[in-house]
Design a protein around this nucleic acid. Structure first.
Length: 925
RNA sequence: GCUCGGGUGGCGGAAUUGGUAGACGCGCUGGACUCAAAAUCCAGUGUCCCUUAAAGACGUGCGGGUUCGAUUCCCGCCCCGAGUACCA
């Protein structure tokens, strides 16, 4: 009987579907285990072989955990809001919901063929009103909370209002907007309701404020920092400019310290934690106030180098800073205006690519150095960022390379204040290192730099002109998008101030519109919606939420996806708690993985989530790259020359569809029929009469014709082979090119495995007692596989299975006692063939609920305490002897112990190395 | 620039974390079975020296070091990949 994967796979896939084999419930006595994949955005292109890599790994782990007796939650869903569907809608007029549904159906069809053990009854879609009801609900809660820095927790706005009404806001240590004014209880109580509403926006965790945003004119929307790379939008690659707009923001920065501290508690890769640490960017420094000559403006700056205050020779403001207006003198007004116009015109990309170009303008004002009382000019330059620190700096050109470049350009003094053994040369560059002794610095002279930083910070604090301050790079997340295809905000406006809808009115569903474009007056697409008002006639919010809104709490929703009364019930949440294993790409490190941690921490503060960290363990699967194939056209002809001979001609390289290429050999007929221009192509072949293609590793993409569809692989080899092969390709976390060359080997293994159970046409398994050798092979394999799965080294499991099969096949072993546990061991990797054989062995229950076999050490050698590894008949072991033992004694002891070991039967000691500290290496073969 | 990873045969990649480097697969060579092909099975396959074999020497990016012993640990350099970038 041949291994007929098609029949087997469709049979078991429908069996699992009909019996809901993988449905789970939170009402269980078993321990829980939550395995989650990052849910996909269903793009129009469908899945390529790279997508399932992580899903296969997580499925192996889920199936393994089930066999180990866990109640495994392993759901799947769709991140359904997104730009591509909307761009398509703009071009074609097709409603994004239709496009999205079609793509989801296609994804589902492809996923089903791979044999995943998802509980599809828990599927979520972010664009489903039943789902986004809870996204809107969470937003309302954020609006109604503020962050208390003393308790490091979100607390209700009512509690804040009560405090302010009683004692003003002076004693409140809140994460709030930088320009929040100090008010007394009396002032608060005298405010109008509108004034109070406006004031509270400074505190709310979801707040409306003017912000400098990344505006992408081409997409017609603002973007978050992680959606912009190198000054271009991540989606589409369009230029981005800085613009001030009134936008919703989430006060993510309030949680900076908790997001940082939380990293210590979770099991993520060091590199990923590192990326997040850098992104959060904690830095300890000093905030210092400089008075300004002839003005009562207090110029506040942030520095990490308080020690260099004697070396300050000018100040610099960010162009967008509020100080600019306050400090520009009338006679400099024109020059400043001209400079600001120039800055406003520059795109983010220009700013970044021309970092070396130094620009700036003098404000006309002078600040007073609080320690030297010297007058120092205040400049404006785009190298200072409005969003970090206070948007103003003290410039120390001798010890900061950017200040140095600026001073050189505008001829400002460079005053050295650090000396390092007289070796510092400031004629070419600054000396930035925090090493050396202070000079030219009054009472700091002679101090070590690090001591001087601390000393100065404390000194200015005592003088009342500064304080020690921790700054974070992490910014608040801009939460408004001027798009149609996203969650509507549960927000309406009264007197130009935002108010939240009643929770009972949720979900606020997305309205229909005629065109998916901004209105004529430049408002977002929702401005086209008819009757987009509350029942009372108040205007509803026209922006929608960004992509990360829907993906920030989906892991909680999977726990209780049907619940209409809560995001997740207390019972379901307390059973499933958080994700034990999360698999996904590292590209989400600064986006989704920050936002969802923030979102979950907020829900934790509310008591909705019972765990502060959502993802206990995280694994980043690598990307599968494409392997592009090339043909070489001889210039000016329709003749194609094989790769090995191309150097003899003048050729152009042309991408060829990889489907026509097998083991780098081109199928000439398929190629000719590909496009009309190739119909009468001629070929110059190599000696073997074949056309060899060239190849290169590139990103998998349609335009390079190197996309491999998993459906084709399944059609030819079956899902089990695809699953095994994707794992066999290399370490899970590595990037690797897709190359079908080796897939035959894996397929061959499955057929060989199948043959262990069959004798010709008939299923043939015996009930004989296994021999020691057979048991040894079995137990070694079980041990290895168990260890591999626990450590996510799925790639090394496949060789172990192959060796095991080869050995059993050489031993002609078809014994039930060996094969039955082996089937279960293979089941996580190749579930279809495992089910088929499991049932053929006479077991009526699904292999899923059998238990993972345990391995027995006694079959795994005992000569010494160390386990020898033996994959090919060679055995090695290690023994340690006291230093007094002679070589002869050692040799005898080794031989005696080797002889008693079962595995030495019929073999002899081939090599023995005895080294002075009495460790012995023995090779037996 | 800074911060992380990583450099092992013709290729993808193993190596019990300091103990036979190159498992397993692909590819290649030869053989068996076949009229033939496919499928399957067996043997060989790091480099050099050699007609062959044995034996030997060399060999994990480069140069040093620690050690009886280093792909593994330490120091310096080179190259590749990822993240980040006027963050004061």
């Amino acid at each position: 009987m041949e291994y007929n994967f098609k029949e087997i796979e469709s049979k078991w896939q429908s069996y699992w579907r009909e019996n809901k084999t993988y449905k789970v419930s939170s009402e269980s006595d078993k321990p829980k285990f939550y395995v989650l994949d990052m849910f996909p955005y269903p793009s129009g292109a469908g899945l390529h072989v790279g997508h399932p890599l992580g899903y296969i790994a997580s499925d192996i782990y889920s199936r393994y955990k089930r066999l180990k007796g866990f109640n495994v939650l392993h759901p799947m869903g769709y991140d359904a809001y997104g730009l591509p569907a909307e761009q398509y809608a703009i071009q074609t007029g097709q409603h994004p919901a239709i496009t999205t549904d079609k793509n989801i159906a296609r994804y589902r069809e492809q996923l089903d063929k791979i044999g995943f053990s998802f509980d599809w009854d828990r599927e979520v879609k972010t664009c489903d009103p039943k789902y986004y009801k809870w996204t809107q609900w969470t937003f309302i809660q954020m609006f109604n909370h503020w962050f208390n820095k003393d308790t490091q927790k979100a607390e209700t706005i009512e509690s804040l209002v009560a405090t302010i009404a009683k004692e003003g806001n002076a004693g409140i240590n809140a994460a709030c907007s930088q320009d929040t004014p100090a008010i007394s209880a009396e002032e608060w109580n005298n405010m109008s309701q509108n004034e109070q509403q406006q004031f509270l926006l400074n505190y709310r965790l979801a707040y409306l404020a003017d912000a400098v945003v990344n505006w992408c004119p081409k997409l017609g929307t603002v973007l978050a920092n992680d959606e912009v790379k190198d000054g271009l939008s991540v989606r589409g690659g369009y230029p981005v400019v800085q613009k001030t707009m009134r936008q919703w923001s989430l006060r993510v920065s309030a949680y900076a310290q908790r997001l940082l501290d939380g990293l210590e508690k979770i099991d993520w890769s060091d590199s990923l934690k590192d990326i997040q640490r850098n992104w959060i960017g904690r830095s300890l420094g000093t905030e210092m106030i400089f008075n300004v000559k002839d003005s009562d403006v207090k110029l506040e700056i942030f520095t990490t180098r308080a020690d260099t205050v004697y070396g300050v020779s000018f100040m610099v403001l960010a162009p967008e800073s509020d100080y600019v207006k306050q400090l520009t003198t009338p006679d400099q007004a024109d020059a400043v205006k001209e400079y600001l116009d120039y800055v406003a015109k520059r795109t983010e990309r220009e700013r970044q690519s021309e970092v070396k170009t130094v620009t700036g303008v003098f404000t006309g004002s002078y600040a007073i150095n609080p320690l030297t009382n010297e007058e120092i000019p205040v400049w404006i330059s785009e190298y200072v960022l409005a969003g970090y620190g206070t948007g103003a700096i003290m410039a120390v050109p001798a010890h900061d390379s950017r200040d140095y470049a600026f001073a050189r350009k505008f001829n400002l003094p460079i005053i050295p204040v650090v000396d390092n053994g007289g070796e510092i040369d400031l004629s070419e560059s600054s000396y930035d290192a925090k090493e050396g002794k202070m000079i030219n610095s009054g009472d700091l002279n002679g101090m070590d730099v690090k001591d001087a930083i601390k000393y100065t910070a404390e000194k200015v604090e005592k003088m009342g002109i500064g304080k020690i301050k921790i700054n974070y790079r992490l910014r608040d997340a801009i939460f408004s998008r001027q798009r149609y295809w996203g969650e509507p905000f549960p927000v309406y406006y009264k007197d130009n101030l935002p108010y939240m809808l009643d929770e009972n009115k949720l979900p606020l569903t997305l309205p229909e519109i005629d065109k998916y474009l901004p209105t004529e007056s430049g408002e977002p697409p929702l401005g086209r919606a008819k009757g987009w008002t509350t029942e009372e006639g108040y205007q509803l919010e026209l922006n929608t939420m960004p992509g990360f809104a829907g993906s920030s709490a989906y892991f909680l929703r999977y726990m209780d996806p049907e619940n209409d009364n809560a995001l997740v019930s207390k019972e379901a949440n307390e059973y499933w708690r958080n994700v034990d294993l999360y698999l996904g790409g590292a590209e989400h490190a600064t986006g989704h993985l920050i936002y969802s941690r923030f979102w979950n921490m907020f829900l934790y503060d509310l008591g909705v989530a019972c765990e502060e960290e959502p993802f206990k363990k995280l694994i980043n699967q690598g990307m599968i790259q494409g392997r592009s194939s090339f043909v070489y056209r001889v210039q000016g002809t329709n003749t194609f020359v094989s790769a090995g001979l191309k150097d003899q001609y003048d050729t152009t390289e042309i991408h060829v569809l990889v489907d026509f290429v097998k083991n780098d050999i081109l199928d000439l007929e398929q190629f000719k029929n590909w496009m009309p221009e190739f119909n009468n192509a001629e070929f110059i072949l190599e000696e073997d009469g074949k056309y060899h293609c060239g190849h290169a590793v590139e990103k998998m993409s349609k335009s390079m014709f190197n996309v491999v569809n998993p459906d084709n692989v399944i059609e030819e080899f079956g899902a089990d082979t695809l699953r095994l092969y994707e794992m066999f390709l290399g370490p899970l976390e590595a990037h690797k090119p897709w190359d079908t060359k080796g897939i035959d080997g894996v397929y061959k293994f499955l057929r060989k495995f199948w043959r262990l159970f069959h004798n010709g046409e008939e299923f043939c398994v015996s009930d004989e007692t296994p021999t020691a050798d057979e048991l040894k092979t079995l137990h070694r394999t079980i041990k290895k596989i168990e260890n591999d799965i626990e450590t996510f080294s799925f790639n090394t499991s496949i060789p172990a299975f192959m060796i095991c099969t080869n050995e059993l096949s050489a031993l002609k072993c078809n014994k039930r006692a060996i094969l039955e546990p082996l089937v279960i061991t293979l089941a996580p990797y190749a579930p279809h063939i495992a089910e088929e054989l499991w049932h053929a062995l006479g077991n009526r229950e699904s292999v899923t609920i059998a238990t993972f076999p345990t391995w027995d050490e006694k079959y795994l050698i005992e000569a010494s305490k160390e386990y020898p590894i033996s994959f090919n008949g060679k055995v090695r072991f290690k023994m340690t002897f006291p230093a007094t033992a002679t070589n002869q004694e050692i040799e005898e002891a080794v031989k005696a112990s080797a002889d008693t070991a079962r595995w030495i039967d019929g073999k002899s000691i081939k090599k023995m190395i005895i080294v002075p500290n009495k460790i012995v290496n023995v090779v037996i073969g």
